[in-house]
Design a protein around this nucleic acid. Structure first.
Lengths: 158, 158
DNA sequence: AAAATTGTTGACTCGCGAGTCATGAAAGCT
DNA sequence: AGCTTTCATGACTCGCGAGTCAACAATTTT
């Protein structure tokens, strides 16, 4: 109930892998293998990230995905918003449609504050930090079954 | 995605109404009418609250529900736990089953802190405060279509 | 131009929370 | 004892996020 959707989780982990590949094009298939997500589902999530301006896609031979901007200029808030829609953190905690600033619900004060805190945290958290954390933990391309050297070699501009 | 389930919302609003009836027995039907929730669904939610020791139920003629304790000794955390299970605020924000203190996920630090904050807030928030807020806002039994005087008269011990 | 590669998209299934319906079980009244 | 009232509960439907499958469109290589 409290937490991100699995779609957002896939997105964050996949982008963390992407960051480790620098500017090279990486296949959705390799990202899926790396984070253990189903390829067709991840494809749709990546597609939403394209729409949100988080990643770029290139079709056809030697295509794939790469970050639209450097990882330290991509926030987790932005990533989640691209996947789940811009309103993922708005709304009443009790789900009341009538709850507004004028006619607030009994948990409004508490939730308004928490919501703002969470939003701020997610905006301050950059993909670079997430990726660095994952890399230090020995995850990402380093430790998955994907052959990193081959992926990077293949992703280079011809 | 972020927020309580509607079941918890129904519970909080219904309990707020219950508080305004003091120690009298109130019918599930009246609570449902008062908060605008479907009766059969609310019944199941009230049943979970019985199991969680939040309310008491009495069947048969002149039966109904009443709070198991005074409203200022019932926390919102307790109510939500009764409805959604005790683990409603545990677990990884990315939904990773492998995430633990030893092998944390990239958002672990952020989420652990937020989770704790939310838990503390919900534990400090008592039903009495919620009910007082609702009453001041002109909601609860005061403003619903239910005849408060009749309900209270009926709920008295014979 | 043809073939191979790779992202795109719509239709489908599955599980779960939300909500409905009908029936059963306890408690009080007469 | 029988009737009425009221909570308890299992089976069902509905909508939605998650995940699958298959056909399609774009791009590069040969």
């Amino acid at each position: 109930m409290f937490g991100l959707t699995t779609a957002s989780a896939h997105a964050i982990l996949a982008l963390s892998c992407l960051e480790q590949a620098d500017d090279r094009w990486v296949l959705a298939r390799d990202l899926a293998a790396c984070i253990g997500a189903p390829l067709p589902y991840l494809s749709k999530i990546l597609n939403r990230l394209v729409g949100g301006g988080v990643v770029e896609a290139k079709r056809g031979y030697r295509g794939g995905f790469r970050l639209a901007r450097p990882a330290d200029r991509l926030t987790v808030a932005e990533i989640v918003a691209a996947v789940e829609g811009p309103d993922f953190l708005t709304g009443c905690i009790l789900g009341l449609t009538t709850c507004s600033e004028e006619r607030v619900c009994p948990l409004h004060g508490f939730w308004k504050q928490e919501r703002q805190r969470i939003a701020e945290q997610l905006e301050q958290l950059h993909l670079g930090a997430v990726s660095a954390f994952e890399q230090q933990a020995g995850r990402g391309f380093n430790r998955c079954s994907v052959d990193l050297a081959a992926v990077l070699e293949k992703g280079k501009a011809p």
